[in-house]
Design a binder for these strands. Structure first.
Lengths: 241, 241
DNA sequence: GTATGATTCAAACGAACGTTTGAACCAGGC
DNA sequence: GCCTGGTTCAAACGTTCGTTTGAATCATAC
């Protein structure tokens, strides 16, 4: 992979910028974080960011690439090991969930190297409005989603594939909120106040498996679009101004 | 963009601005949407936005308030009706989930009045980095979360309250992704290509109930924080201080 | 008609944005 | 010594941002 050039070693300017950017993106978002904020926190010159990365857009991508590369490689390693051990037999759903989400939660638990901050940022970025961010993420995930989807198809041969993909999607959402919520939204998480990802990991894994193995909804998903209500709920909520 | 179909609103400048803002916030985020973009799409003068709302921040809040008011009132109405019918007995978890998430999904299904666009925007905004947005949302949700949490506590008396709150949180995340993902992230949803919220509703409800009723993780959630320190793949090497 | 208050309009404000410039600085090889 | 290529630096580039201004327009009551 040509991700890293040979020259990364010496001056830490490059890494300082990436660390500062990762941290600030989490606190203020991409558009809410200026190059001046990043270079100020990194204590480097403003022009250094454009010198090392070319543009803000490229910097954003590099922030994700340097960590996603490791994460998804580790996920595939875990899946490979399990499939090798199973010797051709389908895996158990719990194993697949563990390989995908357990690996992510372990990275989030590595607070020493900023793993928690990155996972929170990642969870939020899945739904980022910016087009180039989403397509970039989708490309980075293509391989690993392909592999895990196939494993789930084999593990659950009686469940329609669409259903499996949706539940995979739901699980991703639950995990993203579990991570982002510990310091983000206070709607609910403000009441539990548990910051340790090692503590939420078993809770989340139980929830995910329960959802994945839930009974299927009634067969004909197509037809019930009909009862889509006749009275429009109009939000006529007048207000101050 | 299917957004601007012929004449939506009559002539009301205020509503035109809110509709345009809601639509653009979904496509470009808050910071990525300028007042000029909003007033241009609404076909009103630039100064009209500040005239009617005072500031961009106040405009953002009004976009949410006019719809959240209706949504959360409807949620409480559904819960009230069920509790009245139960006559003092605890509700079933499925009823509570239906009152909270079913109501939201029905609003999302009201594509005629932009309900789908708003629910996607709302799901994304739960994890918005901006402080004032999150605190505003938390305040808008305070009552309804209080009521539904209490109902869940009564419905599941044997489940620790922390666990219930976490699972409530996980369910919110799954729904947010389910809605936002239908046009946002293509990581997984790109493969299923089903835009109709009426079609994903039964899928999501099954998943949520499965997760909510999943077996609890091993008892002592406190103790197993210890094993996270010793083992597990480290994010390793490069960088950071 | 005119007066009045609410709304719309074109134009401008200062601030902050991402990016670029060209010189200064700092190695190592000769 | 000098040369060379990578890196840092202060300063500026042009653009866009949210907001404000003061006059023009509209609707309604007198």
């Amino acid at each position: 992979m040509t991700a890293l050039e040979t020259k990364t070693a010496n001056g830490d300017t490059r890494e300082r910028i990436l660390d500062a950017a990762e941290s600030l993106f989490l606190d203020h978002g991409f558009e809410g974080t200026s190059m001046r904020m990043i270079t100020a926190q990194a204590e480097v010159n403003l022009a250094a960011a454009n010198y090392h990365f070319g543009s803000k857009e490229a910097l954003i991508q590099e922030v994700f690439r340097r960590r996603l590369y490791w994460l998804n490689r580790e996920r595939l390693r875990a899946l490979d090991a399990m499939e090798r051990e199973a010797g051709g037999a389908p895996l158990k759903p719990s194993q697949i969930v563990e390989a995908f989400f357990g690996t992510a939660l372990r990275l989030a638990g590595d607070t020493k190297h900023g793993g928690m901050r990155f996972m929170r940022l990642l969870g939020r970025t899945y739904t980022d409005p910016t087009q180039f961010v989403r397509t970039f993420l989708a490309a980075e995930y293509a391989d690993v989603v392909e592999r895990f989807s196939a494993a789930l198809f084999r593990a659950l041969p009686d469940v329609p594939r669409d259903e499996i993909l949706w539940r995979f999607h739901f699980m991703l959402g639950a995990m993203a909120y579990a991570l982002a919520g510990t310091d983000a939204l206070q709607i609910i998480a403000g009441k539990v106040a548990d910051d340790d990802p090692a503590a939420i990991a078993p809770r989340l894994m139980s929830f995910l498996l329960g959802g994945l193995r839930a009974p299927l909804p009634e067969k004909n998903v197509k037809k019930n679009a009909a009862r889509a209500r006749g009275a429009g709920p109009r939000a006529k909520g007048r207000s101050a101004a």
